[in-house]
Nucleic acid binder design. Structure first.
Lengths: 316, 316
DNA sequence: CTGTTAGCGCGTTCAT
DNA sequence: ATGAACGCGCTAACAG
């Protein structure tokens, strides 16, 4: 109890929150006592009276967590510190309900979702008073989905040098994959719109034997183009192709997503897709600041297109 | 207030915590009301009275977060759920003080540290009543450090086919690196103990141009063996060697750490070191259960040696 | 034996 | 600038 500053709890509260007008003299006295005692307001006390904690939960899909995501987490953490929120990272577990429960348990002010939460989950959270970020927009349909676009872009790059059979290389992993399906849809949509056969989908384990088996089952003499879930999958497909004696990019062209350092260090250098996270961060930052003012309304710039860059390597 | 079950708060508390003996009949009534109202005890209230929250914070160094670490986090999360703790992941920021403050803010029951916290930080946390895991043992000296051992093992593998000049390939990254120094020490120690020249250290950026420059500065016709901080660095060194026209493993032998999927999918396949996390988990689990009983004492099995396996690829 | 009352812990807010 | 009351759960003491 910093009330040993010779004042009441109420006064302390006022000083620390800049509420009621307190004479400079007492103000200083309180501040001094606070720093002497290493006093920090109890989050529990605050949460109790507010009915909500100072926590921002970042929910991350249970796929491999790479540099990209980590950079985003860092940025969000920095942003959140500005708003006096403490950041909590939560990896989605296999059981969605449990994940939601874990998030709810914090009674967070805000939840940043990277594709884990379903509509019902979001509703449930917002009903409990949390702000779910990024806010869903009315125009967030499948076709406007960034991952859908990724699928379309990959097809185009794979077909750059001429027609070939297209396949989607999905991640085979015990963890769930929230992004793959939309990318595959994007591929299928583009193919259909251009009168091409619907691309098939194969699951690629991240080891040579498995990848080899998967590719062998799919390959049949005509040139094949594999759009992979990410760079790791692409490397697996390349390894399989090498083992099967396929020429790259002649028989087999491959493309990844993420522009990982590894993909650019191997030979042949991987063609991949790099997403600029700037706009995402801008949107999150905007949603975050709207927490303070409670302005509610969406800030004016609904940047729809996420800038994607094709990093052309030697595999397409 | 679930007191609408027709009983007092005290009774609810008793029922939910299995304290005083409550007749089955009332018990059921309370339980029923609780589930109807979706009642969950407020963590804030509990924290307030306990003086400490139900939180377990995992502090993770600000290096690249890979599969290994993620698996560990998953395991700990599962373990923690057993003990009714909610898990919070916190990435260490550039400023250690800020990191500590962020952890303290939660008033956690326990903190699992992956090498971020200094001795002072640990003390500070334990002073505030948190249990820091893994508990430090008296014999946790540098020479017993797992990373020190890693350094020694790598040297031996690199020298397997005969003498060569040794270099440590450090990570060049804006993020801090808690493990590298001990590995380098292990290398130097082993070299010195065997009458070899002290290995040098070079910083390898994760792109071709930078890695090439670094390697070129170090290479001087005699065979060189590079023990790398991790597989990504090893891939960078390999890329540089390829670009410089060095033969592998003739002129240049390279070894990584982590046994990532990528390292095993490239050609030449990477020689790497895989650490079995089982013992670490066992230790953490033990420390965790000791939270309940407050047994305090270290459980009897101080497994000192972490089992490391050399995955021999084509780069040594 | 059963369940209640009282009071604590802490920060916030309203009325004084 | 303060006292009182509140929000919520826990526990010691106590009355039915």
């Amino acid at each position: 109890m910093a009330r040993r500053a010779g004042v009441s709890r109420a006064t302390v509260s006022h000083v620390l929150n800049g509420r009621g007008r307190i004479p400079e003299e007492t103000r200083q006295r309180v501040l001094a006592a606070a720093s002497e005692l290493q006093y920090t307001p109890s989050p529990a006390g605050r949460a109790l009276v507010r009915g909500r904690s100072d926590v921002l939960v970042i929910v991350i899909p249970h796929t491999t967590f790479g540099r990209n995501l980590q950079d985003l987490v860092d940025d969000i953490t920095a942003q959140a510190d500005t708003h006096d929120l403490s950041v909590v990272v939560r990896f989605a577990g296999p059981d969605p309900e449990e994940t939601l429960a874990a998030v709810q348990h914090f009674r967070p002010v805000a939840v940043v979702d990277f594709g884990v939460l379903g509509a019902a989950d979001r509703d449930s959270l917002e009903a409990s008073g949390a702000v779910v970020i990024p806010k869903l927009r009315p125009d967030d349909t499948l076709e406007n989905n960034a991952n859908f676009t990724i699928g379309e872009l990959m097809v185009q790059e794979l077909l750059r040098k001429g027609p070939r059979r297209l396949v989607f290389g999905a991640l085979l992993d015990e963890r769930s994959d929230p992004f793959g399906p939309a990318r595959y849809e994007g591929m299928k949509h583009w193919a259909q719109a251009h009168g091409l056969p619907i691309p098939r989908r194969m699951e690629i384990p991240l080891h040579l034997a498995g990848a080899r088996a998967a590719l062998q089952a799919e390959f049949a003499d005509e040139p094949i183009g594999v759009a992979c879930y990410n760079d790791a999958v692409a490397l697996a497909v390349l390894a399989a192709g090498r083992d099967l004696g396929l020429s790259v990019p002649g028989h087999l062209s491959v493309m990844g997503v993420d522009a990982t350092a590894e993909g650019q260090l191997v030979s042949p250098r991987l063609t991949t897709l790099k997403a600029d996270n700037g706009p995402v961060m801008a949107r999150i930052a905007a949603d975050l600041t709207s927490l303070d003012g409670r302005t509610g309304a969406h800030p004016g710039t609904p940047e729809r297109t996420r800038p994607f860059t094709v990093i052309r390597g030697e595999t397409t």
